[in-house]
Design a protein around this nucleic acid. Structure first.
Length: 998
DNA sequence: ACCGCCGGGTGCC
DNA sequence: ACCGCCGGGTGCC
C-alpha cells in the first residue's frame, strides 16, 4: 500500500516491475531444505511458477475471435463487452482440453468450442501465454456467443503460440490500439473505460512521466475532502486531536456508508461494474472499511479504538458497562504491576500485559457482559421451496435469461430433465437454479420439497459483536498498552488476547468479546494447522489488520488466512512506508472485499497491467480507487493551516570526546594492526572475501571508542591466513561474523542498506537480512551468487544468527574491576550537570552495546541516579514494567533509561524523556532517527535534545561522514535506489576505505 | 437405393 | 438452433 505515499515510490515501483521479468521460479523445488531452515515465508514455495512476476513483462501477441458454446448448461451470464475469464478444465470427462469460460463473478458461462480448445489448452498448460476474453456481444445469446481473446506473454513465447494456433488453423490478428480495445465501446458504444493496448508512443508514457504521475497520485491522496470531524464516544478516555477526529469521522462514515463501491453504477435496476462491464441484479456489497495510512505517530491505534467504541451498530456506541467509581484506574495499574489476579478481578483493568494468562479474568468479563448485550430481533427467514427432478417444472431457467428472471416473467423450457431450482414461496421469485452440470452448491442440500434454512447469509445468526485486531507480535503489547491508555478507566470493555498456548478454543467465548487481539502468526498457524480454525469460524463485526502491509504477499499463509476471515467491516492500518509495488496492493484490496478486485485477474486486467503499460486512464482509475478507500496524512499534513502534529523541536548535538592517552594507545595499536591487515586485503583484492575480518576490526575500534572492556571477548589478532584449510577458514569467518552480530552492533544489510532484519550469514561469511538474501537466491536460481563476493549462494548454507546478544558476557564483567572511560566520564558529567539544572528531567541513554550499558550502570548507581533499563531481549512482562516505571511522572521514578538502540518496535513510547544520549553512532542514520522518535513523538511536550558522543580522530568520526552521505542519498531523487551488484560492492569498499582512513 | 432427398430430433465440453 | 448434424423414412413423373 504504502508505496504510493513515498516520494520515491514510482521509482521503486518501476524497479520492481522491471526486475520481475527476469525472474524464473520454475526450477524451484526447495521445500524440503527450506523448511529445515524455516525459510518458507520468504521463498513462497507454493507459488505457481510464472503466474505473478511474469505477467508484469507480458506483451500482447494478438487477438482472436472464438466461440463460447454450451451456454444453456450454465448459470453465468455476460453482458455486451463484458470481460470473461478463461480457465482450463483438464479433468473434464469429455475433453481433457476443455477450457471453461467464466464471468466476472466466477460463474461459468460456457466452454470454448472444442476445436479451438485444443491449441488453447496447449498454450495455457505450457504457460506460453495468458489468454483473456471479452465477449463483444453476450447479452442475448442463448446457445453460443462470440469471445474476443487476447494473448499475453513473454516475447520469447510468441512464436510458439502463433505456431500452435496456426497448426490448428487459427491466426492471431495483430492488435491495433485504435480498433482493439477490450471492454470498451467499440461494439455498442456503451460508455466505459478503454483499455487500449499499447503500441503507440502517444499512449505510452515515459518513465519520467510515469514517475511524476505517481508523485501526483501520492499528493492527491493527501489533499482531500475528508475534513469532517467527530467526537469519540464517552468511553474514549483520551481527547482526540483534530486530525484524529477527522479519522474517526471518516472511518465511521465508511462503516455506515450505503454508497455503491467505486466503479459501480446503478442502471435499469442492475448494477454495472464500469471496469469489467459486468452487471448483476444483486447490489455489490459496500466496502465497510478501508485503509488508514496515516504516518507513524499520528494515532492510528487511537483512531481505531475510538472507532470500536463509537460505532457499534446503526451508528450507536459500543454498549459498555460503567464500573463503580471507587474501583478506579490507579488500582488497575497497580494490579498490572503486581500481576495480582485478585486485584484485577476487582478493578476495571481490561487487559493484562501478561498475555499468556487471561483465562480467569475473561470469565468475569463474560458474565458481566451478558447483561449489557444488545438484543436483536431475528430477521424473518425467507421461505423457499426446492424443486427437483420435476418434468413439469416450468421454472427451469434457460441460459441467458437473466433479464427475464429479473422481470419476474415465467420462463419455460420444454425438456427439463433433472433440473433443480428454488422458488421463493411468497413471491414465487426464482432465486437459484441448477442443472445436472451445475448442481446447487450451498443452497439446497436436500432434494425434494422443504424449507431451505437460509439462502441469504447470516440471517439466522446474531449480529456479530466482536472486533478482531491482528497485529505483528512486536506491537501486541502496544495495543494492550493503548487500550489501557485510551479506554476510560471506569468503562468495562471485554478484551481477549488470543495468544499463547492456552488460548481459548471456544468460538462462543470469542464472539462474546468486544475486542479480540491476536497476531498474524497465530492467525496463520491456526489457519494452516486445521481447516476449522477458530478465528475463521466466527463472523466478526470488524477485522482490523495492523501493519497491514504484512499481507502484501498473496502467497503467504498469513495473507491467505487474513483474506478468508469473515467480517462485516474491514480495516487496514499501515503507516511506515514500505518498499512496495503496485501488485502488492492486490491483497489489501482483496481483503477489503472490493469487487471485482477480490479476484486477482480482474485487478490485473483492469488496473495493474494498464497502469504498468502507462495508460493514463488507468492511473486515474487507480488514483480514484486509492482516494476512495484511503485516509492518508503525513506528519507534515495540515488542518486549517496548522500542522497535524506540532511536535516540539528536536535538536541534535555532537559532543566530541577525546580519549585518554592510555585509551588512545590501545586504540591506535588495534587500529594499526587492523589497518595493516585491511590494506593487505586491498592489495590482494580480497577485501570483500575478508569481510568478516574487516567488520571485526571496525567493531573492535568502535567498542574501544566506548570502553576498553567492551572488546575483550573478540580475539584481537586477526587470523593468519595460509595455514588453514578452506573449511576451517570458512568456519572461522562465520564465527567472526557471529561474534560481530552478537555484540549488539547494528550492522546493515548490503542489499536493502537498512539495519539487519533476521540476519543470516552466508557460506562466504557475509551477512544479509534473511528476506533480502532469499529474494536474491530465488531470483537468481539455480546459480545465485553472493552480492558482495560472487561466491555461490545456497539456502542450505545460510546460518541464522540471533541479533540479540546473550547477557552472559555482562555477568562475566563482574570479576573484572570496573573502570571508567572517556565516554562514560563525558556522559556522567553531562548527567550531573543536567540534574543540577533540573532534577526531574528524564534521559535515554542509548547504545548498541548492551555490555556498555551494563558498564554505565555502575557510575549511575554511585551518583545516585534512579534508572531503568530496556533491552531487546527482555521478556514482555519486564519490558512493560520498565516502560511504565519510566513513563511515570512521580518523584522517585527513574529519570534514566538505559536503552539498546534497537530495543522495542516502532511503537515504543518513551515520551517522558526529553534528553537522549547516544553513546555510539550507528551505521544507519535511520536507525538512530527511529530511536530518537521514541521520545520525539506525539505526547512529547518539551523540546528534545539529543547528544551524540563521538570520539575525535576515530572510526566514529568516519562513521558520521558515511551517515551524512547516506542522508544526502536518502533525500535525493533516487532514494533507496536498488543498487546493482557492482555498485553494492563499490559502496562497501569505499566505506571501508573511509572508515579505516585508507 | 451400396444413392439423394425429406423432415424430425436434436444440440458443450 | 431462423443453424448444422444425425439417422430413419423413403423413392418416377
Amino acid at each position: 500500500m504504502a508505496w504510493m505515499f513515498m516520494r520515491d515510490s514510482a521509482w521503486k515501483y518501476l524497479q520492481s516491475a522491471h526486475r520481475g521479468g527476469d525472474r524464473n521460479y520454475s526450477h524451484y523445488t526447495s521445500r524440503d531444505f527450506s523448511s529445515q531452515f524455516g525459510l518458507e515465508d520468504f521463498l513462497c514455495t507454493d507459488d505457481i511458477p510464472g503466474t505473478d512476476e511474469d505477467t508484469d513483462s507480458a506483451v500482447l501477441f494478438g487477438t482472436l475471435r472464438g466461440n463460447v458454446v454450451g451456454l444453456r448448461y450454465y448459470t453465468g451470464v455476460v453482458n455486451n463487452n463484458e470481460m470473461v475469464a478463461l480457465q482450463r478444465e483438464p479433468n473434464n470427462r469429455y475433453d481433457k482440453n476443455a477450457v471453461k469460460v467464466n464471468n466476472v463473478n466466477g460463474n461459468q458461462v460456457g466452454h470454448i468450442k472444442k476445436e479451438l480448445a485444443v491449441p488453447l489448452a496447449y498454450i495455457m498448460d505450457n504457460k506460453l501465454a495468458i489468454v483473456e476474453g471479452v465477449v463483444p456481444y453476450g447479452a442475448k445469446n442463448a446457445f453460443t456467443m462470440p469471445v474476443q481473446m487476447s494473448f499475453w506473454g513473454k516475447e520469447e513465447n510468441k512464436q510458439a503460440v502463433l505456431d500452435k494456433l496456426k497448426m490448428h488453423g487459427f491466426k492471431l490478428a495483430p492488435s491495433k490500439s485504435s480498433e482493439f480495445a477490450f471492454g470498451s465501446s467499440w461494439v455498442s458504444g456503451r460508455a466505459g473505460p478503454s483499455y487500449s493496448a499499447p503500441g503507440h508512443a502517444a499512449v505510452q508514457m515515459t518513465t519520467e512521466q510515469l514517475k511524476s504521475e505517481f508523485d501526483k497520485l501520492f499528493e492527491d491522496v493527501k489533499e482531500d475532502d475528508k475534513t469532517h470531524e467527530m467526537e469519540g464516544a464517552e468511553a474514549v478516555g483520551t481527547p482526540l486531536l483534530p486530525h484524529q477526529k477527522q479519522a474517526l469521522a471518516w472511518m465511521v462514515s465508511r462503516e455506515n456508508s450505503k454508497e455503491l463501491p467505486l466503479f459501480w453504477e446503478e442502471k435499469n435496476n442492475f448494477y454495472y461494474n464500469t471496469l469489467t462491464n459486468f452487471a448483476e441484479k444483486d447490489r455489490p456489497e459496500t466496502v465497510l472499511g478501508g485503509i488508514l495510512a496515516d504516518d507513524m505517530g499520528l494515532g492510528k491505534t487511537l483512531a481505531t479504538i475510538a472507532l470500536i467504541l463509537t460505532n457499534f451498530h446503526d451508528g450507536k456506541p459500543l454498549p459498555v458497562e460503567k464500573i463503580k467509581s471507587d474501583q478506579l484506574h490507579k488500582e488497575s495499574v497497580t494490579g498490572v504491576k503486581n500481576e495480582g489476579h485478585e486485584l484485577l478481578k476487582e478493578t476495571s483493568c481490561n487487559v493484562e500485559p501478561n498475555i499468556s494468562n487471561v483465562k480467569k479474568k475473561s470469565e468475569i468479563i463474560q458474565s458481566q457482559y451478558s447483561s449489557s448485550r444488545p438484543k436483536r430481533a431475528k430477521a424473518e427467514k425467507p421461505k423457499y421451496t426446492v424443486c427437483s427432478d420435476s418434468e413439469e417444472s416450468e421454472e427451469w431457467l434457460p441460459q441467458q435469461t437473466r433479464t427475464k428472471c429479473e422481470k419476474n416473467l415465467p420462463v419455460t423450457r420444454k425438456r427439463s430433465k433433472t433440473a433443480a431450482c428454488i422458488i421463493q414461496e411468497d413471491t414465487g421469485f426464482v432465486s437459484a437454479l441448477a442443472s445436472p452440470s451445475a448442481p446447487l452448491k450451498k443452497k439446497a442440500k436436500k432434494k425434494g420439497t422443504g424449507s431451505v434454512q437460509s439462502v441469504k447469509k447470516n440471517d439466522s445468526e446474531e449480529s456479530p459483536r466482536t472486533t478482531l485486531i491482528i497485529c505483528p507480535l512486536s506491537v501486541l503489547s502496544i495495543w494492550i498498552d493503548q487500550f489501557e491508555q485510551h479506554i476510560r478507566p471506569d468503562i468495562h470493555v471485554n478484551i481477549y488476547v488470543y495468544y499463547g498456548p492456552d488460548r481459548s478454543k471456544d468460538p462462543a467465548f470469542l464472539s462474546k468479546q468486544d475486542i479480540v487481539l491476536t497476531t498474524y502468526n497465530i492467525l496463520a498457524s491456526d489457519y494452516g494447522s486445521r481447516g476449522d480454525s477458530l478465528l475463521h469460524r466466527i463472523k466478526w463485526l470488524r477485522v482490523v489488520l495492523d501493519e497491514g502491509h504484512t499481507i502484501r504477499n498473496p502467497n503467504a499463509q498469513q495473507t491467505k488466512a487474513a483474506l478468508n476471515l469473515e467480517a462485516q467491516r474491514r480495516w487496514i492500518l499501515t503507516g511506515t512506508p514500505i518498499q512496495n509495488s503496485l501488485k502488492d496492493l492486490w491483497s489489501l484490496l482483496s481483503f477489503l472485499k472490493l469487487k471485482p478486485f477480490t479476484d486477482r485477474e480482474w485487478w490485473h486486467r483492469t488496473i495493474q497491467r494498464p497502469v504498468m503499460l502507462g495508460e493514463q486512464g488507468a492511473l486515474r482509475r487507480l488514483q480514484a480507487l486509492i482516494k476512495n478507500i484511503t485516509l492518508r496524512r503525513t506528519k507534515t499534513s495540515k488542518i486549517k493551516g496548522k500542522p497535524v502534529l506540532e511536535l516540539p523541536e528536536r535538536k541534535v548535538f555532537i559532543q566530541h570526546v577525546t580519549l585518554t592517552e592510555e585509551e588512545r594507545k590501545i586504540y591506535q595499536s588495534v587500529k594499526n594492526e587492523g589497518k595493516a591487515a585491511i590494506s593487505r586485503y586491498f592489495n590482494e583484492g580480497t577485501v570483500l572475501a575478508h569481510y568478516a575480518d574487516v567488520l571485526g576490526v571496525l567493531l573492535r575500534l568502535r567498542q574501544l571508542c566506548c570502553h576498553p572492556h567492551l572488546c575483550t571477548n573478540t580475539s584481537s589478532s586477526s587470523c593468519q591466513i595460509g595455514e588453514s584449510t578452506p573449511e576451517e577458514l570458512h568456519e572461522k569467518l562465520v564465527n567472526k561474523m557471529k561474534l560481530v552480530l552478537s555484540s549488539g552492533s547494528d550492522e546493515e544489510c548490503a542489499i536493502c542498506l537498512d539495519s539487519l532484519n533476521l540476519p543470516v550469514i552466508t557460506h562466504c561469511a557475509h551477512v544479509f537480512c534473511k528476506p533480502c538474501i532469499c529474494e536474491v537466491i530465488q531470483s537468481e536460481q539455480p546459480n545465485a551468487k553472493c552480492p558482495l563476493c560472487r561466491n555461490e549462494l545456497r539456502v542450505e548454507h545460510l546460518v541464522e544468527c540471533p541479533p540479540e546478544e546473550s547477557d552472559s558476557s555482562i555477568e562475566k564483567k563482574g570479576d573484572q574491576e570496573w573502570i571508567s572511560s572517556s565516554k562514560i566520564n563525558a556522559l556522567m558529567h553531562a548527567l550531573i550537570d543536567l540534574r543540577k539544572q533540573n532534577p526531574a528531567v528524564k534521559c535515554l541513554i542509548v547504545s548498541q552495546f548492551t555490555t556498555f550499558l551494563s558498564l554505565i550502570e555502575t557510575p549511575l548507581k554511585e551518583s545516585g541516579f534512579v534508572f531503568t533499563r530496556l533491552n531487546g531481549s527482555m521478556a514482555q512482562k519486564k519490558r512493560v514494567q520498565a516502560i511504565q516505571s519510566f513513563q511515570d511522572s512521580q518523584t522517585g521514578s527513574p529519570t534514566i533509561m538505559l536503552l539498546s538502540l534497537k530495543a522495542g518496535g516502532v511503537g515504543l513510547n518513551l515520551t517522558a524523556a526529553s534528553r537522549v544520549f547516544l553513546m555510539d553512532p550507528a551505521w544507519n542514520p535511520a536507525a538512530e532517527d527511529q530511536c530518537f522518535d521514541r521520545c520525539h513523538r506525539l505526547g512529547q511536550k518539551q523540546d528534545v535534545v539529543i547528544t551524540k558522543f563521538i570520539v575525535k580522530n576515530s572510526v566514529e568520526e568516519n562513521m558520521l561522514k558515511i551517515q551524512n552521505k547516506k542522508r544526502e542519498l536518502a533525500a535525493g531523487a533516487f532514494a533507496a535506489k536498488k543498487l546493482t551488484v557492482s555498485e553494492v560492492k563499490q559502496t562497501k569498499i569505499n566505506e571501508i576505505k573511509t572508515l579505516i582512513d585508507l
